[in-house]
Simulated assay, not measured.
Amino acid sequence: MDQTALFSLTYGMYILGTEFDGKINACIVNTVSQVTQEPVRVSVNVIKNNYTAELINKSKKFSVSVLSRNASLDTVMNFGYSSGRDRNKFENMSYDTDVQGCPIIRTGCNAVISCKVFETIDLGTHYMFIADVVDCEKTNNDDSMTYGDYRDIKAGKQIDSKSEEKKEMYECSICHYIYDGETSFDELPDDYVCPVCGQPKSVFYKI
């Protein structure tokens, strides 16, 4: 089976937010889709050990901020490269709250959607949250960011300005996330997972 065929699937880029008992958090996902028109429902898949997934399981609500093509890489890195268990991702971010109290981001996003969980499906490695859309707003007419756009943005930052040498890069074979961090990939802990799709270190390959 040629699993590279799956690379042809297209994805958007979204900030998935939630709130529970006064705690807010958000992460980057690429699996939001509308599943029904009447009632209007969407679904999102999130890896089980993700802190946002943990809070959504408790709160039964979430928000989706749709990243636009002019969103900064810093925004993606802020919400996608670390866990909310370790730091407050909103500390230096401008944000609002939706009708359910979930955080939403308007800067660099072209729409915000508020959702109430209707059903949770255990998919093994991930939870699928199916939710009713309780409110939504189009914030501007910018084009939505795709995962391909994100990779293009990343490609513009591959040269280390100090050494002018290209960093070693490793790509996730599942969602195509590219790791080019300061820490050598080989030195990352064995329990490292892709910050976008949550798959283990073993699915990465050098590019």
Score class of each variant (00 low, 15 high):
24 I>Y: 14
65 S>Q: 12
49 N>E: 11
56 I>T: 05
23 K>S: 10
34 Q>T: 01
76 V>I: 14
55 L>T: 02
24 I>A: 10
53 A>F: 10
84 G>T: 06
62 F>S: 06
50 N>V: 09
40 V>Y: 06
59 S>W: 13
35 V>D: 00
65 S>F: 14
30 N>C: 02
67 L>W: 01
67 L>N: 01
38 E>V: 11
65 S>M: 11
45 N>T: 13
77 M>S: 12
68 S>I: 07
48 K>S: 07
74 D>V: 09
31 T>A: 05
49 N>Y: 14
81 Y>W: 05
68 S>C: 08
27 C>H: 15
78 N>I: 11
39 P>R: 04
66 V>M: 05
57 N>T: 13
84 G>L: 04
48 K>M: 08
40 V>P: 05
22 G>L: 05
23 K>H: 12
38 E>Q: 11
66 V>N: 03
28 I>L: 15
70 N>K: 15
82 S>D: 14
25 N>Q: 07
62 F>L: 07
76 V>E: 01
28 I>H: 12
58 K>S: 08
27 C>G: 14
42 V>C: 03
35 V>E: 00
68 S>W: 06
44 V>Y: 13
33 S>F: 06
33 S>I: 09
78 N>R: 13
35 V>T: 08
69 R>D: 08
38 E>F: 09
77 M>V: 15
31 T>G: 04
55 L>I: 02
59 S>F: 14
42 V>R: 05
66 V>D: 04
66 V>A: 05
64 V>C: 10
27 C>W: 05
70 N>W: 14
49 N>H: 12
32 V>T: 02
56 I>M: 09
29 V>W: 02
38 E>Y: 10
71 A>R: 03
36 T>V: 05
43 S>H: 00
44 V>C: 12
69 R>T: 07
78 N>G: 01
46 V>I: 13
70 N>I: 15
51 Y>V: 02
81 Y>G: 09
23 K>M: 11
75 T>D: 14
25 N>D: 09
55 L>W: 02
54 E>S: 06
77 M>A: 13
24 I>T: 15
81 Y>M: 13
32 V>I: 03
66 V>S: 08
